[in-house]
Design a binder for these strands. Sequence first.
DNA 1: TAGCAGGAATACT
DNA 2: AGTATTCCTGCTA
Length: 339
Amino acid sequence: MASPVRVHPDSALLQPTRSGSVFSESSLAHLKREEMDVENLELVDSKPRLDSSERGLTGLYLSCFDMLFTEEAAWLVRVADSSGSVSVGPRLEPCPEPEQCPVIDSPGLGGEPLSPGLEDQVEERSLEQVQSLVVGEVLKDIETACKLLNITPDPVEWSCGNVQKWLLWTEHLYRLPQVGKAFQDLDGKDLCAMTEEDFRQRSPQCGDTLHAHLDIWKSAAWMKQRCSVGESRITAGEELWSEADSSCSGQPIHLWQFLRELLLKPHSYGRCIRWLNKEKGIFKIEDSAHVARLWGLRKNRPAMNYDKLSRSIRQYYKKGIIRKPDVSQRLVYQFVHPV
DNA sequence: TAGCAGGAATACT
DNA sequence: AGTATTCCTGCTA
């Protein structure tokens, strides 16, 4: 079954954790039921690829490019016909994000057996990485759908037409029977107020599936709202260590922020930079050249290298932002004020 | 050889 | 002005 997100069959991954996934267990479990054939999760790149030779890989997602550039053309015409207003173009450009490390960092792989305690830590980290990966992919797919359908991410704001677009999209994506008519009189508010039972009554075949997907959209909208509220609430002092994504702020990004961004996305960058001790803010740059290249890309400094990047890090010593840990190790640094 | 430390000049915002 | 970049010398593992 085609789906933008595939979740590891291990149901433990679907449980809410202290890292705070807001996607309800039932929603994710529903997706799990639909598509769970993924065993080699760690092999997956988080970026869409056009290379057809790679489509056969067991993947975490159905590439949005697959969806957009192949069979979707005909489908989009259908959406346009049914809603009368969807604008298909402009074609989504491949994300200009810097190249990413395709493999989830897996400490211990191929190495010595880990002690039980360490094993627990590794397992917990892997779970967090997978969950963060899944949530990230869900959010990306929602964003893609919003652009394509020209609808807002928050279902509550949808008009009846928006609801129909979303239904068509979801039906198409998950190969569901067409049930748009059963929901044709509803706008976003109505839809969001409906229980799973209401959905089943309107569509016995796939009401539960639609309800689960809507639940995910609602959760994503909630997350987004929470994020924006948080940004406006933080004070200048708190801003330093907030979770706010610096890429949205419009301000030039600082190197320490950039490093934290990488560290907060272990599923994408865990291979080039990772926490050694998150509580203490100790991290290790595993691939100095790669991190420098990413920094150079972000700052549009093609000549950036680790020598220069590390000089910038050392400038933070005096400012009390980053320091060397008590036991100095190569490529290991420590945030003075950990999260 | 790569990484580290820090001075100094310069560029950028 | 603050921050980052660039280049440098010298040191260390």
